[in-house]
């Protein structure tokens, strides 16, 4: 009976584990803050542990090159999104909603991207 109880407890513990590939968002980014950034998509790096895209944002004559990390490639693959879904918008305007980096640098964690053709991809929590 005790082993059954242990098995149930262990199963509950194992099932409760979040399985992400990384540090928590809150270790680097401001998890409770969303910033919207619009600019030109210049690069799409389909790499682990997180995809990274780059967006040139013009403010007057100044250009800030934003680095935006997203979910792991395997995550995108399993929700049916490939690198090409991003890359076809290279050199075009995109708007990204990100959790900004805590250090204030032009770096964020991707929550949503809207492409020039109006299509958008949004990573949502379902639990």
């Amino acid at each position: 009976m005790r082993s059954l109880l242990w098995a149930v407890l262990a199963l509950a513990a194992a099932s409760a584990q979040p399985v992400a590939g990384h540090h928590s968002i809150s270790a680097v980014f401001e998890a409770d803050k969303l910033v919207s950034v619009t600019g030109t998509l210049t690069k799409v790096d389909w790499i682990n542990p997180h995809i990274v895209i780059f967006v040139d944002v013009k403010t007057g004559s100044a250009v800030a090159n934003w680095k935006v990390a997203g979910a792991p490639p395997a995550w995108w693959r399993n929700v049916g999104v490939n690198r090409a879904d991003f890359a076809e918008s290279l050199a075009q305007q995109v708007t990204v909603e990100v959790n900004p980096a805590q250090d204030g640098s032009p770096y964020g964690y991707l929550r949503k991207i809207r492409f020039a053709n109006g299509e958008s991809l949004e990573a949502t929590s379902t639990q």
Partner: peptide, 22 residues
């Protein structure tokens, strides 16, 4: 699929349609 966050989904909007993949 190791390294994937299970507690999330993708919402995709295109041409007035919306689709969520969990």
């Amino acid at each position: 699929f190791p390294g994937v966050n299970a507690s999330s989904a993708l919402r995709r909007e295109a041409a007035g349609t919306e689709e969520t993949r969990r």
